[in-house]
Amino acid sequence: MTTLDQIAAPNRRRRFGSLTLWAGIALVGIHIAVGLLTVVWSPYDPSGMTGGRLEAPSWLHWAGTDRLGRDFLTQIMIGSRIALIVGTGAAAIGAIIGVTLGLLAAFATKLLDDAFAATLDILIAFPTLLIAMLVVAAADTANLGSAIFALGIALSAIVARLTRILTKRVLLLDYITAARTSGTSWLGIVFRHILPNIWPTLSVSFALQFGLAAIAEASLSYLGLGAPPPNASWGRLLQEAQGTVYTAPIGAIAPGIALVSLVIGINLLADGLRDSVDPTRRAR
């Protein structure tokens, strides 16, 4: 009976939901604010040697300086901008390619769909990072654009598979048949019925992709395949801090905290958003 499903989720979830939303907004908001700020202002010139080498945190340099004497806080702040650009760009490219392919697969004939599903499964079996490295290698210049594109391609397989499954599930429901018998075109059905109904799950997935992309970009940069030096990616900061991790641990800790806080923030935000865009979960 339906009664049990209805009582399974008590109101606590909704209150908790709004709490996660606000925590997510706060964390991501800080990164966005810092990222935007660095476009017009940063504490020091990011490439200027403004202090001694590997200085400890002080009033002048809140997070100390790196081994070339550059202000470390400035670098971390610019890292926020890079991470946001890469995360957003890669998630957007992954979403556009993935959702389109997933929808096409869901509507395709049985044979095509099976072939498509098998291809996706094989692609997903490769680690995101590996695919991204291959794409970067193929592009043969390492810059921010190629990193974003590479990660977007790598993520699109995951999005496509999810979109395909979610779409197939919605296609079975009577309101789709009702739309067809009302004369709604397939394109109309996609935009009016399918996308709004799979959006809550997809949006959470996009946020996860964003987090994955931010981490993968850090990994690419760590391996020297990410954005080239004037762009202070957290991955490169971590890589540079590797040799001095015992003498100046802040060099590893600070970019790590920055990365983790952004990824957690975006996940909380996604969770909170899912609850608020779903009319069936809104307060009655």
Binding site: D174, Y175, T177, A178, H193, P196, N197, P279
Partner: peptide, 11 residues
């Protein structure tokens, strides 16, 4: 249709 829960788009 039979099932009034699946025949109306919840959104």
């Amino acid at each position: 249709f039979q099932d009034p829960y699946s025949s109306l788009d919840p959104r």
